[in-house]
Design a protein around this nucleic acid. Structure first.
Length: 900
RNA sequence: GCCCGGGUGGCGGAAUGGUAGACGCAGCGGACUUAAAAUCCGUUGUCCUUAGGACGUGCGGGUUCGAGUCCCGCCCCGGGCACCA
């Protein structure tokens, strides 16, 4: 029998056998419970997998293998998110076609996943670009449309000039394209949207029912951005309507046709402090205002509107940007006190949120304050600030109230008392806002309202490589769904599919695709935009339940059986995109009665990133660093040539572009698949990022060698029928120690795998191997009882380690001349009595400091323990000359003697 | 600015309010070897000359018989959001 870990000699053999025996084909035994373990749907990049990707797949594999051995039916599938921009961009760069290219890349991914021994059921695999799959993506699109959740609109959208397509809000980060970093432009193009905003509240509420990291839940809540407030209407008046000579008079010429506008505020309590209003430059009321103010104003307004339109998202969001705006010359009437206040347009108010208009309260809002200072507007305080504000600004109430503009800090908290607020003066925030809300609702000009930052999901892309949208337009441009029997609308094979700058899809240049007949036989035109990749990945987890169904997206019974995903594992970077979209689709499908779950992913886990050491240097004089760059990236060759002090090494996420990738191919070739698996599990807690180093794999490999050596030493004493007689042999001396270590290990391994504590799972295996190795040295000629205990120890080690090191487990199992695969054996059960220690070390503290330890039989009485502790010479030397005030005994742990 | 994470030996990390540093890496000493690698045995928080002791989980307070762990106030690092009314 092999006495060391020699992966080259057996790992590939076992992988082949697993495949030959269809070991990982999903078991659907109705008498068993199910477990659905899933990894995020990967886009198969041409660079292949790095050891960073493996950090996702290995832990899920451990869970799934352990669950299978624990008796569950396990669904552990893998497929590929093949449609979308990354694939298409890569194909364009390589002047190839994305279809065959992605097949090749996916095959490479599969090869690498098999290389590291992941137990996927490949018979269920598919790509989102398979017509058999996207037929049903289109079917679900239709479902959304029929339920009023898909619509076409000519809204201003985020356009990436490099990718030449519109992007969803979630794909724009800080005004840049999330994928390529190009500044995003505004363009008005007719686009398809999904009405995810209808589900905003449910998407918040149901987060309470899933077992996800709090951070991710929070990110989703923030992204959805619920805020409660009041929406109310204000009248607009113009100079011409005011009685001449009484410019500030409250008497306004009655005019029922006064234009009105609505504002949304979360601080209705500050309404008496409103000194102006602001409309977004795109607000429809501006057109009305332009008709009623003089020409100079109109020119100014239009100039500002034009400027706002050309301003990129980047510029508009720039840090600490000075406020800009234009006075429209119109006034709003504050319903609280009847005062008229000027209406401005300014780009710090956005059309897309709330009503696109605000009441401005400069005394208690930083943005409004900045604007008021810049434009010389009144700042009327309506809160007496609390003590801490006055103290921080070294002032008193009177000084503040007489001139709040003189203070650099704006009082924005809710900890003051209302003043200058008519009958509400003297009230707190809580009381004031409640009463004012009541009043404004009673007046009939406003209502309580909830707003969400979440926008509808822009889903059309002006690109070739995506799922075609199953819509046809008649000659009048009316949309009509493609009927089910004509699905899928197949993506045509073409040679030239490059995107264009004009916002049209490449499909619009293919007459055979474009021209169709409508359902009534008239000439029609196909929708030529395709669905963004996130649509395809919003339901794939359902398809895995029934992947080859030709007549339905899934058989309902099967989906009901397997859903929800019990454990979903992937990177935290998808916190708001994929996870929000998939939840939305699941809820829609739930509403349509097609699935039984409201949430698709019961438990979510995010693995930490793997960072590779990456060389950088300082920029030279003529070099400019891009946004967020910390230096000029070097290749490893360049770094080797530069003097040491000119190179800065940083830990950066592994990526092809950084040149810092370690592939599983290299790792397996140099150290072995099981060593890679053990190392990735052991190196750090699952969620934490890791600085990669190859020496760690050396350690993992050494550990596996110790496992083989231990197994080879036990092998001659191996008794595979140990289970039958072990309970009849008295466990004493060494055999008791062996059994104790065994059952402690089984317990730790079982619990740690369940709680994703893979690092301590592996360390407990190391401790166990060390312990048994030590004991084995002490029993060169083991008794029958010891032989049985050693056999139990070895079998438990093989089984409990097999999810982490499956090749080695099978290799050792076979060397013991045992049949079958470890994967098909039952997971051992731990026995708490056997795991219990019979001698316990008690710590003796004096005044909380450790002074001595004590060996006591387990279960000793508190009195005995206390008496022994007080008898300790070492403890006594610290008590000497003091009076014992108290003795605290923690059973099985310690004794603390309090003396002074 | 706001919302999450996180600060423990030379390094990765372990520790239901109860003996801080499990397990591993690296280091050091030794065995084996002509030698090296591999492997094995021992050792390794800091300080005090040792027995032994003092100090030690980012900083400052607090609660407790007892705090890495709980509470209050900071500092630093990582991530997310951000003119959202």
């Amino acid at each position: 029998m092999r006495d060391r870990y020699e992966p080259g000699a057996f790992e590939q053999i076992w992988r082949n056998r697993w495949l030959e025996h269809d070991l990982f084909v999903t078991r659907e035994d109705p008498t068993r419970e199910k477990f659905y373990g899933l990894d995020f749907f990967p886009y198969p990049s041409g660079a292949g997998l790095s050891v960073g990707h493996c950090r996702n797949y290995i832990p899920t594999d451990v869970i799934c293998r352990a669950k299978y051995m624990q008796g569950y039916n396990v669904l552990h599938p893998m497929g590929f998110d093949a449609f979308g921009l990354p694939a298409e961009n890569e194909a364009i760069k390589r002047k190839s076609h994305p279809g065959p290219m992605i097949d090749q890349y996916a095959a490479n991914y599969q090869r690498q996943m098999e290389l590291i021994g992941i137990s996927y059921d490949w018979s269920r695999s598919f790509k989102s670009s398979d017509p058999e799959y996207y037929k049903w993506t289109q079917w679900i699109f239709k479902l959304l449309y029929e339920r009023g959740l898909a619509y076409r609109s000519n809204a201003e959208v985020n356009w990436c000039p490099k990718d030449k397509t519109a992007l969803a809000n979630e794909e724009v980060v800080g005004g840049l394209c999330e994928r390529c970093g190009t500044p995003v432009e505004k363009r008005a193009i007719p686009q398809w949207f999904f009405k995810i905003t209808d589900y905003a509240q449910r998407l918040i509420d149901d987060l309470d029912d899933v077992d996800w990291p709090e951070g991710i839940k929070n990110q989703q809540r923030n992204w959805i951005g619920r805020s409660e407030g009041v929406e109310f209407t204000m009248r607009v008046v113009f100079d011409s309507e005011l009685e001449v000579g009484h410019p500030d008079d409250l008497v306004v010429v009655a005019d029922q046709s006064d234009p009105r506008f609505k504002v949304f505020t979360t601080r209705i309590d500050t309404i008496f402090g409103m000194t102006f209003c602001v409309l977004a430059p795109e607000h429809p009321l501006v057109a009305t205002i332009k008709k009623r103010v003089d020409n100079d104003r109109v020119a100014e307004i239009e100039a500002y509107q034009a400027k706002a339109k050309t301003l990129s998202e980047m510029d508009r969001q720039a840090d600490n940007r000075e406020k800009t705006g234009v006075n429209t010359g119109a006034y709003a009437v504050n319903p609280a006190n009847g005062k008229r206040v000027p209406i401005f347009i300014a780009d710090y108010v956005m059309m897309g949120y709330g009503t696109g208009a605000i009441m401005a309260v400069p005394a208690h809002d930083q943005r409004d304050f900045d604007f008021a200072v810049k434009f010389g507007l009144d700042v009327v305080p309506i809160y007496r600030p609390d003590e801490s504000f006055l103290k921080a600004n070294d002032t008193d109430e009177g000084t503040y109230l007489s001139d709040p503009k003189a203070f650099p800090e704006v009082f924005t908290t809710k900890d003051g008392t209302l003043v200058n607020s008519g009958e509400y003066s003297g009230m707190s925030f809580e009381e004031g806002s409640a009463k004012m809300t009541e009043w404004i609702v009673a007046l009939g000009i406003g209502e309580q309202k909830v707003n969400y930052k979440l926008r509808d999901w822009l889903i059309s892309r002006q690109r070739y490589w995506g799922c075609p949208i199953p819509v046809v337009y008649d000659k009048d441009g009316n949309a009509e769904l493609v009927s089910d029997n004509l699905l899928p609308v197949e993506l045509p094979e073409v040679d030239n599919y490059e995107p264009s700058d004009d916002g049209s899809s490449p499909l619009s240049r293919i007459p055979e695709f474009l021209n169709v007949t409508t359902q009534d036989g008239m000439l029609g035109r196909r929708e030529t935009d395709t669905l963004g990749g996130f649509a395809c990945s919003s339901w794939y987890f359902l398809r895995f339940a029934d992947p080859h169904n030709e007549s339905q997206p899934w058989n309902q019974e099967k989906a009901d059986y397997w859903m929800p995903v019990d454990c979903y594992v992937g990177g935290a970077e998808h916190a708001v995109m994929h996870l929000l979209y998939a939840r939305f689709w699941t809820k829609v499908l739930f509403d349509a009665g097609l699935v039984k779950v409201k949430e698709p992913f019961q438990r979510l886990m995010n693995q930490g990133q793997v960072l590779g050491q990456t060389p950088y240097r300082q920029p030279k004089d003529d070099e400019v660093l891009g946004v967020g760059e910390e230096g000029i990236l070097l290749s490893f060759e360049e770094a080797a040539q530069l003097p040491e002090d000119e190179v800065t090494w940083r830990w950066v996420r592994m990526s092809k572009s950084k040149g810092n990738v370690v592939t599983p191919d290299e790792a397996v070739a140099n150290y072995g698949a099981d060593a890679l698996r053990i190392y990735e599990l052991f190196v750090a807690p699952f969620e934490q990022s890791v600085n990669w180093n190859n020496e760690g794999m050396q350690g993992a490999s050494r550990f596996l060698s110790r496992v083989f050596r231990l197994a080879s030493e036990i092998a001659p004493k191996w008794n595979d029928a140990w289970k039958l007689s072990i309970e009849h042999e008295p466990a004493d001396g060494k055999s008791k120690e062996i059994r104790r270590a065994t059952h402690q290990f089984i317990r730790k391994a079982t619990e740690d795998i369940d709680r994703f504590a893979f690092n301590t799972y592996i360390s407990s295996a190391m401790t166990f191997v060390n312990t048994i190795t030590d004991i084995l040295k002490q029993v060169p000629n083991p008794t029958e009882s010891e032989r049985l205990a050693l056999s139990e120890a070895l079998e438990s080690l093989i089984k409990c380690l097999s999810p982490a090191a499956p090749h080695s487990a099978d290799e050792i199992w076979q060397s013991l001349e045992e049949p079958g695969f470890v994967y098909q054996l039952d997971w051992p059960k731990f026995n708490a009595d056997l795991a219990a220690e019979d001698t316990i070390t008690i710590a003796i503290q004096v005044n909380g400091k450790l002074r001595d330890t004590l060996q006591m039989p387990a279960g000793s009485s508190n009195e005995d323990v206390e008496a022994q502790a007080l008898a300790s010479d070492k403890a006594q030397s610290f008590i000497d000359g003091k009076t014992i005030r108290k003795v605290i005994v923690v059973p099985g742990k310690l004794v603390n003697i309090v003396a002074n």
